[in-house]
């Protein structure tokens, strides 16, 4: 150190430059997300807060219903720990093509683009596991998962599509999925999935309240497992006794539709095949897609 100088005076005389370029790296990351997402006309999250209620099934069938209406559609499976969209879309054996321009996602039925971490996992029985101590430390894991989500938003070649459905993970805490949804730029809103049990409705209520607190619009609610259609006589009977209608009225949200148990639906999901267009559940999803389309176009015209 020069005589008569202290660190403070030396540093003051030096020009600081960010050679690590951390800020510019973060800015570039955000810029890539924005540029890629600007090409996607509508982004809709499918969430619940409660696990096992059929979010992925709803996501897949909504995407197919929109694609059948002639829209260009993509699905982003953000359930990194239990990705099942590739299997439901019949894409278990396909992965991304990595090109200098971006990652080309595999195409499912009706040319639906599907991005999922499941495409990187070689065997169905394998779980998602991260290298090093990241995977075993909740703080790093959360940061890493958000960064991976950012990469899926910025690096996958979605192209000019009309609808991107984001299948959000379940969360023991009701706040995790809305926090992820907030990360998606210009999100149109969320479709909430529940089953008609008081337990599910209770968690879903918390999730909706949290999402609204973050400024996420709730497009409506879909009640899954809302009954059982007897394969013999075709009569629909209730399985649970939760009062979805009361919750919907109390929260002032739209009940988009009810999806009962159905063997064909379950079979199609397991086989990775779309339901036939004439199947009554495919028609219900078509009606739901009609309601969402109208809702979004009325917003655009306001």
């Amino acid at each position: 150190m020069s005589e008569g100088k202290d660190l403070k005076s030396i540093i003051k005389s030096l020009e600081y430059s960010d050679t690590a370029k951390i800020v510019s790296q973060v800015v570039k990351q955000q810029g890539r997300v924005r540029a890629n997402m600007d090409k996607v006309r509508h982004k809709i999250a499918v969430m619940s807060g409660k696990g096992g209620v059929g979010k992925s099934m709803v996501t897949v069938n909504l995407a197919i219903a929109f694609a059948r209406r002639g829209y260009r559609v993509g699905i982003l499976d953000s359930d990194f720990n239990g990705p099942c969209i590739p299997k439901m879309m019949g894409l278990s054996d396909l992965s991304f093509q990595i090109t200098p321009e971006g990652a080309i996602p595999p195409l499912g039925p009706f040319h639906i683009k599907v991005a999922s971490l499941g495409s990187f996992v070689s065997r169905e029985e394998n779980c998602t596991r991260w290298k090093g101590p990241i995977g075993s430390t909740p703080v790093w894991l959360g940061t890493l998962e958000m960064s991976v989500l950012r990469e899926f938003l910025s690096d996958v070649i979605w192209g000019d599509i009309d609808y991107l459905f984001i299948d959000l993970p379940p969360g023991a805490a009701a706040d995790k999925p809305p926090a992820i949804a907030r990360f998606i730029p210009d999100l149109d809103g969320a479709v909430v999935v529940t089953i008609p049990t008081e337990i599910s409705l209770s968690v879903v209520r918390k999730s909706i309240a949290y999402a609204r607190g973050l400024g996420i619009s709730i497009l409506g609610l879909i009640e899954n497992m809302s009954g059982f259609v007897c394969p013999g006589c075709g009569v629909e009977a209730s399985q649970f006794e939760g009062e979805t209608q009361r919750v919907v009225s109390n929260l002032d949200i739209t009940l988009l539709g009810k999806i009962p148990f159905d063997r064909n639906l379950s079979r199609c999901c397991d086989r990775g095949e779309p339901l036939e267009e004439g199947h009554f559940i495919a028609r219900r999803f078509s009606e739901i897609s009609g309601v969402i389309t109208e809702l979004l176009s009325s917003r655009e015209s306001e």
Partner: peptide, 19 residues
């Protein structure tokens, strides 16, 4: 900061045996 590779973090952070 040179040359951004698509899904670089995803591919490098996943356990290699699994991808």
């Amino acid at each position: 900061t040179s040359g951004h590779a698509p899904l670089e973090l995803t591919r490098t952070a996943l356990d290699e045996d699994r991808i």
